[in-house]
């Protein structure tokens, strides 16, 4: 167990290192950083000063070393737009995106698991076929357009939900959360649903396949042979089995939820770090872009790690021993 943890943490650090290198190369070397770092009005002397100050005149590996050194100290540069450390700017927006992504995750499970299991129990029925066709639709709908249509229906036509923003927040341990207020939840409903739509189709598919597979197993026959109620068979025997792939895949997809929050937050003018990223790209605020990408990578790594642990907790056949760690 201990050896496994050590190795797993080593892997995670390696991924972070690789990402930092890629992000550095992509953001700092593609295009000319000076153009975006220096005001267009600056004269030649100012330019040279900035270049020297930022170390842009040094060899690339030295620049990267400096970047990495500073990053390790939590310094990813200062936002040009906000005049604050880029990491702080990101962290201020992080809670909004996190609560949106978690809410979307819950939505996709709440929608996907019951429908998927139902379709899996009755694969040839009208209900089953309808659900599966519906899941194709869920995969197909571009989620920014769904967001627009939801705004059109619920905010513009019916006027029962807000069209954007985050709403009221409550401060807990110095962090502003919206999910604790009714107004905040109302603001979160449409974006979270939009974000959840694609993932719930994925959950439907996994649950349907899993249920069909489990249903054909002898242990379900045996369980029925014991005289168990259908509720017990579905809720315990089937669900416990299909939760394993669902948890694994949803864990991996949590990263994608945060990434796609970029689109959804833009649609709903939701002040999370995804919207911040788009704003920063449009304003060429590179330190913030870098801070966003590295923060997101860190979240992916942490989530994947957590999923591995959860996976082990759910599947007794897998123990975090050395042979199971590959």
């Amino acid at each position: 167990m201990f050896a496994y943890l050590i190795r797993r943490i080593g892997q995670s650090l390696l991924i972070l290192f690789a990402m930092s290198l890629l992000v550095f190369l992509a953001v700092y070397t593609l295009g000319n950083p000076v153009d975006s770092l220096v005001s267009p009005d600056a004269d030649q002397a100012d330019r040279a000063a900035v270049i020297r100050q930022l170390g842009l005149d040094r060899p690339i590996w030295e620049q990267y070393g400096l970047f990495l050194w500073n990053a390790l100290h939590g310094d990813l540069g200062t936002s040009f737009v906000y005049g604050l450390p880029a990491v702080d700017v990101i962290l201020m927006r992080l809670p909004a995106t996190l609560e949106l992504a978690v809410m979307a995750l819950l939505f996709s499970l709440a929608i996907g698991i019951p429908l998927g299991v139902l379709a899996g129990l009755r694969p040839n029925s009208l209900v089953g076929r309808t659900i599966m066709s519906g899941s194709i639709l869920g995969f197909s709908l571009p989620n920014f357009w769904i967001g627009l249509m939801l705004i059109l229906v619920f905010a513009v036509q019916l006027r029962i939900l807000p069209s954007g923003g985050r709403g009221e927040t409550v401060s807990v341990f110095g962090v502003a959360w919206a999910f604790l207020t009714l107004d905040g939840l109302k603001h979160m409903l449409l974006p979270a649903f939009t974000l959840a739509l694609y993932k719930s189709s994925l959950v439907v598919r996994i649950c349907e396949a899993g249920t069909r597979d489990v249903m054909s197993q002898d242990y379900i026959r045996f369980a029925r042979g014991k005289g168990l109620s259908p509720a017990r068979i579905v809720c315990v025997h089937i669900l416990k089995n299909i939760l394993i792939p669902v948890v694994t895949i949803m864990g991996m997809e949590f990263g994608a939820l945060i990434a796609f929050a970029v689109v959804v937050e833009s649609v709903f003018a939701y002040p999370g770090m995804g919207k911040l990223l788009i704003d920063s790209i449009n304003r060429l605020d590179r330190p913030v872009i870098v801070a966003y990408l590295l923060t997101t990578t860190l979240i992916f790594v942490i989530v994947n790690f957590a999923v591995d642990l959860m996976y082990a907790a759910l599947d007794p056949r897998i123990r975090l021993s050395d042979e199971g760690a590959t």
Binding site: I15, A26, V27, G255, A259, F260, V262, I281, I289, L293
Partner: peptide, 20 residues
């Protein structure tokens, strides 16, 4: 594996923010 573990839209955003 490394690339596929990263959401496609982020990669696109990084590249396009550099390319225009």
């Amino acid at each position: 594996d490394l690339q596929l573990s990263f959401p496609s839209i982020l990669i696109a955003l990084v590249l396009l923010s550099a390319f225009g």
